[in-house]
Design a binder for these strands. Structure first.
Lengths: 167, 167
DNA sequence: TTGGAATGTCAACAACACTGACATAAACTG
DNA sequence: CAGTTTATGTCAGTGTTGTTGACATTCCAA
């Protein structure tokens, strides 16, 4: 490449950072980081025979109180049978309540009870603490890049769901 | 805050970027991005009745040919029973071979067969393609930040394993 | 009224993790 | 050498989370 390569500047980096080795490091970083990301809530959940699925349901119900089952399904990307099993235990345990819709009585609107909100807070606090520490370690510009890459890694439908939650 | 806040510069950001809302966005970004991260290999694996566990084993055996079972266990962070189930099927299907150690005959050293390497390449290609696209979208500085935050999110033992793989 | 959408339930199954227990062989240690 | 530890493998049981398929109910809408 005779034209325009400086070898040390921006253009050199943009050629190098897409090598298979660099990509593999990114892949492995995702793998390990996700383990860390879920480690704290997992520990708490294990004590009450709940799992990640319960956490996810609780998180998004807290995020969007009154959300419908269908809406939750599209966010979580699982089958209704799978979600239903989780919701049934959460409702049975008094962490979630399901209200029949007023406009459309087929729909069930989901809310956290006080007890559900308390668990959500416990789980969130643990996860946010780690996130906060990671953000602090890495610095604000790194966080910008972090979010940018993650968003670029999503499928279009996930990106839509993600954007919707940011309203 | 009378002293030193500009409201638009670096100091303003470093105060704001640790709000619960910002952290929650990061948490949700991780959730959705990880789905995207695994989506392509998952599709391929589903066709051959393999799962993510097989992918992970194949990935790290390819990454460190001759690695022992114990070493793989510490990297993957699962029980030996869980790993053994996966390895048994991979060995039975002719994707992995296990050689008795020469120095220490208790150890089994793991290698991919040609067939195993072929599957690894197929899975890696799919995952790297998405990673490459995300990196391209986000730009080189974003990638730096991405890795920095991910690394800060790991537990100490993961960070050690991750660093070890970068040698 | 017929069709479709939203929801729920039941059954079966698979992947993947866990614990606990036990076996074997090899290596280390006193 | 005897005893212990280490590395690995295996069997049995259990739990969470996901899947498909089938079927029922309720209700809105054309």
């Amino acid at each position: 490449m005779p034209e325009g390569r400086t070898g040390q500047g921006y253009s050199g980096e943009s050629l190098l950072f897409l090598t298979d080795e660099q990509l593999r490091q990114g892949i492995e970083a995702m793998f390990f980081a996700y383990r860390g990301f879920t480690a704290d809530p997992d520990r708490i959940l294990a004590e009450m025979s709940y799992g990640r699925a319960h956490h996810r349901a609780i998180h998004f119900i807290n995020r969007s109180p009154g959300t419908t089952v269908n809406n939750l399904l599209s966010i979580l990307g699982v089958t209704k049978q799978s979600l239903n099993r989780v919701l049934r235990t959460l409702i049975g345990d008094g962490l979630v309540i399901s209200k029949v819709g007023e406009l459309d009585k087929r729909e069930r609107h989901l809310y956290l009870t006080d007890q559900g909100a308390a668990l959500e807070a416990t789980l969130s606090d643990a996860q946010r603490a780690r996130m906060r520490a990671a953000y602090k370690d890495a610095g604000p510009e790194a966080v910008q890049g972090f979010k940018k890459v993650l968003e670029a890694m999503m499928d279009a439908d996930m990106r839509r769901a993600y954007a919707k939650l940011r309203d």
